[in-house]
Design a protein around this nucleic acid. Sequence first.
DNA 1: GTGAAAGCGCTAACAC
DNA 2: GTGTTAGCGCTTTCAC
Lengths: 334, 334
Amino acid sequence: MFKPVTIKDIAKELKLSTSTVSRALRGGYEISDETKKLVLDYAEKINFKRNPIALSLKERRSYSIGIVVCEVANVFFSQAIDGIESIAYSKGYNTIISQSHDKYEREVINMEHLANRSVDGIIISLAAETKNYEHIEKLHKQGLPIVFFDRILESMQTHKVTSNNVKGAFEATEYLIKKGCKKIAHLANSEQLSITAQRQIGYKDALTKHHIPFKKEYVRYCEHGGSMKDEVEQAMISLLNLPEKPDAIFVASDRLSMGCLAALKKHHSENIIVAGFSNSDVVELFSPSLSCVRQPAFEMGQIATEMLISIIEAKYPVEEFETRILDTTFSPIA
Amino acid sequence: MFKPVTIKDIAKELKLSTSTVSRALRGGYEISDETKKLVLDYAEKINFKRNPIALSLKERRSYSIGIVVCEVANVFFSQAIDGIESIAYSKGYNTIISQSHDKYEREVINMEHLANRSVDGIIISLAAETKNYEHIEKLHKQGLPIVFFDRILESMQTHKVTSNNVKGAFEATEYLIKKGCKKIAHLANSEQLSITAQRQIGYKDALTKHHIPFKKEYVRYCEHGGSMKDEVEQAMISLLNLPEKPDAIFVASDRLSMGCLAALKKHHSENIIVAGFSNSDVVELFSPSLSCVRQPAFEMGQIATEMLISIIEAKYPVEEFETRILDTTFSPIA
DNA sequence: GTGAAAGCGCTAACAC
DNA sequence: GTGTTAGCGCTTTCAC
């Protein structure tokens, strides 16, 4: 079976004590240069690596951080993960990625598992279904550092990173208005998500500015964030069947944008103009086309990670928390 | 700080020894039902969870399996990951996902890290850049169970899962031929990958069957799997500038397919017909359109995981290895 | 400058 | 049926 070299093996080989070896390895100042070199060279030679499991047990921390996102297949999240990893690795942390698939139960299980696994902190974007936050609050109260990004929990006292959802939504909606559209529908994520509220504000603001009345009938929520089969298509059908059929749609998330375009194509309504949040890197290939609001996902991941590590490594309990709001970029089609 | 309950706390509270508690918790037959109930109830009440770190240290295994893929943003891999997780979780294992981004160095670091992290085994699909396999062979020799999927290492004695790359490529190419194309180019991944060789065989077979000569000039390899900026576009440009400009392209992977379509659009060559490997779930939205060969990614992940766990849990060293080849599905456009 | 020993949380042989 | 003890690999007092 797989049996790595231990500090003991080195000690035996070099006729030293394990403590001396340990100290030499971590460059303890008490050790003579001679011994230090001896140990270091030998360790190098046999490719010794400290056992992080033992270290974790000893230090009650693991130098790993947990990530909870709805799914890695979503470009926004995979970019964010890349950002998280870039910072984490550079600071000596590893990451453990877990997916909630927008399910509340999965999120609960994932969080518990990460906590048991002794991650030093968690970076999370809430699942679409999550309405109860006890599982997070409990861990937070127990002292586990938690940072939110994208889909944040406003009520929790901790660091948060979002993009400027209001402005992003405003720009997209105003673009549709300037295109001459008057009946602009809004396809949204589940109602209780922070991003849903924010993006709806931007949508409404744009309507108001241009004297277009806001109509509740034009708004559809996807409770499962589009993870449920047919969820998005059903929402789209009900919009398309409205007596006053929309001439444009503002879509509030990546996954919904894809579902929206697919539904328009399927139901031969390509004349409806779509603008929405999406970080897709192949958006120029889409037909019907999509004007999109892009979030700085990579950077959001980086910042969230810096924030998390700052809490983890803080000498004293952190009392002051920050919410960073990054700008989105709007890329209209033509 | 975050301080979970330990078995010791329970022992103290219940005035028992830690071993009794430990045994009761795992349902040891020697413990009286009375004590067992006492312990179980109390553990339940205070929401006790065994510390997996301590367990790992003790048992020299972690009940976690490592995954190495080029990137999670790639649909094929994210689907495979979902398959892996489905089996892993059901059998009590956790997963640690790591991305090579098709870089050799990253792959080496990831593998080492996973091994140090005491994963019980690794499921890997090779990076496009990887040409040297010592990092894998070393761990394998040390007894770490390894299973390959998709981009496999033929020379290693272990379980492997692939899709029927030859047949998939054959079908796609033949489809192009039946569409009336005669000058069919081939955009491929890096040359040393198993899938590259296999898919090229299928491509050639189809040409041969229909009496079209194979031309080396029509083949382009992407050494970095398309992860390098402009890599795919450059390859495409050189194909488009050929004296005998191709009238169709068979593309050998998901990422390349996207790059290929983007390049065709950018260089106004939408008349060229494209067929290629892709597991994209929004392929019907693409323009130019893509006829695609789909791999059963989820199932491949599941099978790989079952194989891995069978090695991990084998009582005796496994000597007989299996290579499972799953069928692809071809979805032509129109 | 180096070694012996205790302890992180858990399990399992070995008492009793 | 339950307790004692040693040990997984490592760090870190405390001796010397």
